[in-house]
Deep mutational scan, measured.
Amino acid sequence: NQASVVANQLIPINTALTLVMMRSEVVTPVGIPAEDIPRLVSMQVNRAVPLGTTLMPDMVRGYA
């Protein structure tokens, strides 16, 4: 089972991601792999991401 990136807090739209906003968790469906967390830092979300939501590739500008 692969860990995915999950929002550690509410992340408002257009917010640049920081390490404290994300955690890794084994979830279904699988989202962005946890090993990509360092790559996600400073990328912006293109929608509001509620606490506990799995980050999907289409939620992060420039990721996919």
Rank of each mutant, 00 (worst) to 15 (best):
Q2T: 11
A34H: 11
V6G: 01
R39V: 12
A48T: 13
G62S: 08
Y63G: 05
Q2K: 12
M59C: 03
A48S: 07
E35G: 10
S4N: 01
A7S: 14
I13R: 14
M59N: 06
A64E: 13
G31R: 02
Q9T: 15
V30K: 13
P38G: 14
T54L: 05
L40T: 01
N14M: 09
A16C: 03
A64F: 04
Y63V: 05
N46P: 03
V20M: 15
V41Q: 06
N1G: 12
T54R: 04
P38E: 12
N46S: 14
T28M: 14
S42I: 03
N1H: 12
T28W: 12
G31P: 00
P33I: 11
R47Q: 09
V49K: 00
T53P: 00
A48Q: 14
V5E: 01
L51M: 13
E35C: 04
V45A: 06
V45N: 03
L10C: 04
Q44T: 07
I37H: 03
A48C: 05
M59R: 03
P57M: 08
V30Q: 14
M22K: 00
E25H: 08
G52A: 09
Q2G: 14
M21W: 02
S24M: 10
V6Q: 04
N8C: 03
N14D: 15
P33V: 09
G31D: 00
N14T: 04
T28R: 07
A64Y: 05
A7M: 05
L55K: 01
S24G: 14
I32D: 00
P50T: 13
L17A: 00
I11G: 00
A7I: 08
L17C: 02
L55D: 01
V49D: 02
N46I: 15
M21E: 02
L40C: 03
V49I: 14
T28F: 09
D58F: 09
L17D: 00
S24C: 04
S42H: 12
R23P: 01
P33T: 13
Q2E: 10
G62W: 06
L19M: 09
D36C: 04
N8F: 06
V27I: 11
Y63K: 03
P12R: 07
P38A: 11
P38C: 04
T54E: 01
P38K: 12
M22N: 01
V27S: 07
T15S: 11
P29K: 06
L51P: 10
S4G: 05
